[in-house]
Design a protein around this nucleic acid. Sequence first.
DNA 1: CGTGATCTTGAAAATTTTCAAATAGAGTGG
DNA 2: CCACTCTATTTGAAAATTTTCAAGATCACG
Lengths: 232, 232
Amino acid sequence: MGSACAGCPVRDRAACSVLSEEERDSLARAGRMRTLGRGELLFAAGDEDAACATLVRGALKVTSVDEEGRERILALIHPAGFIGELFAPFAHHDVVALGESELCVFARRDMNAALDRHPALARALLRRSEEDLHRSRQLLALDARPSARDKVGSLLLALAEAASDSPCHPARQFDLPLTRGEMGNMLGLTIETVSRALTKLENDRVIQRKGARGIELLDPARLGQSDEERVV
Amino acid sequence: MGSACAGCPVRDRAACSVLSEEERDSLARAGRMRTLGRGELLFAAGDEDAACATLVRGALKVTSVDEEGRERILALIHPAGFIGELFAPFAHHDVVALGESELCVFARRDMNAALDRHPALARALLRRSEEDLHRSRQLLALDARPSARDKVGSLLLALAEAASDSPCHPARQFDLPLTRGEMGNMLGLTIETVSRALTKLENDRVIQRKGARGIELLDPARLGQSDEERVV
DNA sequence: CGTGATCTTGAAAATTTTCAAATAGAGTGG
DNA sequence: CCACTCTATTTGAAAATTTTCAAGATCACG
């Protein structure tokens, strides 16, 4: 029987890829695989000693719920992403599967021990955390766009890039992992406004909808652009 | 002559506080102090091998400029905060002083070397990065509020907490480190809307303005709340 | 005590939200 | 496989909010 990680689809990209074969297997023995269906919770805000995990397949959302019960999506996690707070005494946010997802889950104590044992792992997580921070800031930049059309366009572009295998190139065609409500939630818009923005993008021949969730990018260059600016 | 760090105001909170006295001094010798005035640039997006630094005094903003020239504030850095990307080949964003600021600056190579030499430093930076990520997500949550009044209120609360010494307790009175334009920028609102929101908050006896920049919190509990929800 | 920049305020225009209803899709049980 | 049902999405029109444009007030500073 081969290594537990031998067939792992993210073995070359996840944080643990910096470990040697043996080190990785030993870490894998401390963890376990887990599958979540759409809407299932990995852990909830307030959980003590919440686990941490590498996402192997699927997609997750990180959300917070304010005092009035409104949910806010704070981040999306894609395969090879690491999820979990190693230092906070309890989880700050909920983490929920957007679709069927597979994770490699570790107890926080085990991950902390691994961090001590393998300095390279700490570096790898620091690097990943830096990337997460960058992604979070890009998300922040989305909200700066003045018009709903631009916000939705920028989000589509971000999702297309996340859906693509090759980094930095958006997938030409992909399925939205988010409902209209979830998209609106991320952009501070209502469901109806998101829907209207998509209609407008389609009328402008920037995208082509394929059913409710499928998106084809006809003119990716105009997605991130302002509504007006491209009249030239 | 004592240690270079002996009088450092953030010596107990910055990432380097996990080092021993000697380790810290040796790191300090690799770095240098630098003072920036309001509006001065620490480094710019695209800089190769941009330095990194711990903020000792003052405040910084991390900004990006989109293709149409609009600036977007992505993060605020407060004393003891660490700034700089250790892994990206070039800086993603501009970093600018909001007011007179003092920093402890390191060449990226030196910081990377220190990371290898002191695993505890990698952990400390990972922890700090996790906190930055959390703050960035909180900022993201600001934009979810539907009304301008709530957005501005939430931002004021965040700034009051940053201005306070005691964590988790907002300063009752403080000076805004940001112009109206910068606040609007962070919230996706115009200068005028921010100004009107402040006027409304003042009319509602939630805050009291002291000149253009001074803010006194009269009823902090109502700052983060929805406009309507608190009619009871 | 000017002077330029920042901030406030007003009114019209544009955009978004809200409320309401119709349509399309996905999943289920017959 | 199809009809049914529940949910998600789209669309419309009025109401509310925000932006834009314009002008006056205030502040900081030389």
